[in-house]
């Protein structure tokens, strides 16, 4: 059981990176990017392209991929998301859904349907581990992913807390119109947030490609984990995303420890439970406390 908890926590690190971008988009730009998983896979393919075709070193490829993906995020926000947002909340959902399909088939056209992985380019990192007492072993790659997750979220936290752009992002996320009144250009801030979010998605995609195999159609399956982490951790909260990722990962691995069939089910259940509690709390707040909420529901 101890091993299951350890593996779950480490898995949570990957979920956190994946979820951070989704959370940022929702918190600041106020829509759910359904193409987030596909953008992650695109980032992985871009890094693979740098490694396999251009012969770059893996970490150099990752370093080259992130700014390109950030630029793509900037462009997507400017060209697509900002326009669709003007038409309400449904249109961006549809637009990103379509973007996802476009990305999947585009990647299929460019890279083919062969499964690919970055794991074979990082030597033994993808499968070596440290053996600990009590029959616990921790993989080097999951540990590394977790450390990167903490560092990235920490850096992002500092960026939001300390820099001028960061403060503008927070101001925009609280009230875009009020931020405009005090001289923040909200449209630009949205583009910055999208750039950071897509770069984070790409980073998650790179780690996915190191631990697993990717195909052009691997994105949607990842989106669900990201979405669940965001909801569990609290929308728009960075450290909450890490907590959400860890809670999801531990719930899944403990579920699997009970019975292998419960891995995904346990994750979904904890997600639904948290969502239910949140909705109920909102309901309670709107009805002036627990007592009246319960009584009100009865009548």
């Amino acid at each position: 059981m101890l091993d299951a908890i350890v593996q779950g926590i480490l898995l949570g690190g990957y979920y956190a990176i994946l979820a951070a971008g989704l959370s940022l988009m929702f918190g600041v730009v106020r829509f759910i990017n359904l193409a987030h998983g596909d953008l992650a896979v695109l980032g992985a393919y871009l890094a693979l392209f740098c490694v396999e075709r251009l012969g770059l070193q893996v970490w150099l490829s990752v370093a080259a991929t992130l700014p390109i993906m950030a630029a793509l995020g900037w462009f997507l926000q400017a060209a697509i998301f900002a326009r669709t947002l003007r038409a309400g909340i449904l249109l961006p959902l549809l637009a990103t859904f379509g973007l996802g399909a476009l990305l999947q088939n585009g990647m299929f056209g460019l890279f083919g349907s062969d499964t690919k992985s970055l794991g074979n380019h990082i030597g033994s990192l993808s499968w070596s581990s440290w053996q600990l007492p009590l029959d616990v072993s921790i993989g080097k790659l999951p540990t590394f992913t977790f450390v990167v997750a903490v560092l990235v979220l920490g850096a992002l936290h500092q960026f939001l807390a300390r820099t001028k752009v960061g403060r503008a992002i927070r101001a925009t996320s609280i009230d875009a119109e009020a931020a405009e009144l005090v001289g923040v250009e909200a449209a630009r801030i949205h583009r910055v947030a999208a750039a950071v979010a897509v770069a984070l998605a790409a980073l998650a995609g790179v780690f996915l490609a190191m631990r697993a195999l990717i195909t052009p159609y691997a994105g949607p399956a990842q989106l669900i984990f990201a979405f669940e982490s965001v909801v569990i951790g609290g929308i728009g909260s960075l450290w909450g995303t890490l907590v959400g990722g860890i809670v999801l990962g531990v719930a899944q691995s403990l579920g699997a420890w009970l019975s292998p069939q419960f891995f995904q089910l346990a994750g979904h259940l904890i997600f639904l439970a948290v969502l239910g509690v949140r909705l109920w709390r909102t309901h309670v707040a709107e009805h002036g406390g627990w007592r009246s909420a319960v009584l009100g529901a009865r009548t």
Binding site: A4, G8, S253, A256, P260, Q261, Q264, L265
Partner: peptide, 17 residues
């Protein structure tokens, strides 16, 4: 037999143990 699991599982530590 480690029992049935759902495809797309990102962690197999229970089965491996």
């Amino acid at each position: 037999d480690a029992g049935p699991y759902e495809s797309g599982n990102p962690d197999f530590s229970t089965q491996i143990n």
